[in-house]
Amino acid sequence: MLGFAQLFASRLVKAAAILIAIVVMNFFLVHAAPGDPAMVMAGEAGAADEKFVTQLREQFGLDRPLYEQLGTYVGKIVQGDLGFSYRQQRPVWDILAERLPATLVLTLTAFILALAAGVALGTLAAVTVGTWADSAITVVALLAYATPIYWIGLMLSLFFSIQLGWLPAFGYETIGAGYTGLAHVADVAVHLILPVITLALFYMASYARLTRASMLEVRSLDFVKTAKAKGLSQSRIVTRHVLRNAILPVITVAGIQAGQLVGGSILIETVFAWPGIGRLAFEAVLQRDYQVLLGIFLVTSIMVILFNILTDILYGLVDPRIQVSQ
């Protein structure tokens, strides 16, 4: 397991490097923005009061040379200080921490659903290649690929909530119902259904297409010929030999697309009024609350890095070679 630990350590170092790069990028974004950086930090120009802007200038040493400012900025972030939202009169980190769990629940559930359902559908399409089931899966995947996720969200809520009244159209829980314990969990779960499906649909389509293509490719490889020559049954060949090898590129792509999935939560949370970071981003855009927006940028990047580590571990579990070759 030494190889695995090494791999993990090098991944962590890489993650740290990426984080630092993102922090630096944040810093330059504030400075590259048109107008006075203090004003940009405070929010919409002119809206902030003079005292606060002066305080910001002092705090970040905005009259000092750029590299010194960068140092101060990085130092603050390292200490967990993501700045102060003038709009909400609260530290940015407090606002984010409050919203984080809702987003984690949404994105993680969607990620797992997309991966599981995508691989299952792709496998089904590959083993029934050329039949109606394959065509149906291919067409649905193509459509899901071409549809903006926020519009899918709107259409689903138009149909299932407004027309049929089956599922709640928005929110995290039934307001004022005061559920506790399991009833609360069930209530949240019901609210979760539409947002999760909406967010997962695109990625499910993507993984299904990829799994199908990958299975068809692996199916023609030599070791599958060996398995056939052993007289194994079709189902054993598919599960033991083809699928396991075919899944590797799917995991790689899932890791790469994790960033898009996390970004997509902005749209989903906006459509379904899900009280997470994405919804917060929408509000911050409306209010020109750049401090919060940049905080979100940082936090979502960390989430992506975590998703990437997750997929790396998954890959390492499936592929024994990774522990030595990396």
Partner: peptide, 10 residues
């Protein structure tokens, strides 16, 4: 081809 005739993950 002995290099490709065995399942690499088994």
């Amino acid at each position: 081809e002995p290099m490709t005739a065995l399942n690499p993950l088994m």
